[in-house]
């Protein structure tokens, strides 16, 4: 029996075409991160995030023969999950984004509001601010600061030119700062 723990995601993805049960290995590796990503960009509850993730993995299974060996499985599955989440989120009313203090620090550090983030109230406030942003700005901030993706990975997940990613990230930070000042510094 091959030792799947030592195999890369890409190698396992190829094997799923032979033995579909192996999709469990990929789900196990990615479930926690992907569910957190789904919740952050859409604010849906845990049950809904599980439904979205299930649909995303079914879609990934359907399109497995289109998965290119040159791609990273990680960016590929994130793109599918992102598209499924947006598609699901647009059909439902948006709910509140929820962050903890550690997560709030990640974004606050870059936006020079770290000094305020010690107060738990501001972690909640940062969550509110993220919830107020347009989905395209929220997604890019979450990919950059919570998923810690590089620009080229963000470009591949969102299917945008690299230049557009840089511009959109700059705008997202500007809008975040303005909203933060408006909502959290009343």
């Amino acid at each position: 029996m091959p030792n799947y723990e030592k195999m890369s995601d890409e190698e396992i993805a190829r094997q799923v075409l032979i033995d579909k049960e192996l999709i469990r290995v990929l789900i196990e590796r990615y479930e926690r991160r992907l569910r957190a990503y789904i919740v952050k960009i859409s604010g849906v509850d845990q049950d809904a995030s599980a439904d979205i993730l299930q649909d995303a993995f079914i879609k990934a299974y359907l399109n497995l023969r289109d998965f290119d060996d040159q791609q990273k499985f990680s960016t590929w599955i994130y793109r599918i999950v992102h598209n499924e989440t947006i598609s699901h989120w647009r059909k439902r009313r948006r709910e509140n984004i929820s962050l903890d203090a550690t997560e709030a620090e990640k974004i606050a550090a870059d936006l020079d509001i770290l000094r305020d983030v010690q107060n738990n109230l501001d972690a909640t406030c940062i969550s509110r601010v993220l919830g107020e942003l347009d989905e395209k700005y929220r997604s890019i901030l979450i990919l950059k600061y919570f998923e810690e993706r590089q620009y080229d990975e963000i470009a591949e997940i969102l299917r945008l030119p690299a230049g557009t990613v840089a511009i959109r990230l700059r705008r997202a930070k500007e809008k975040f700062s303005k909203l933060y000042t408006k909502i959290c510094h009343k």
Partner: peptide
């Protein structure tokens, strides 16, 4: 964690 994997495989089958 196990339920999602089960559900996906169950749906595929």
């Amino acid at each position: 964690q196990i339920n999602i994997a089960d559900q996906v495989v169950e749906k595929i089958n």
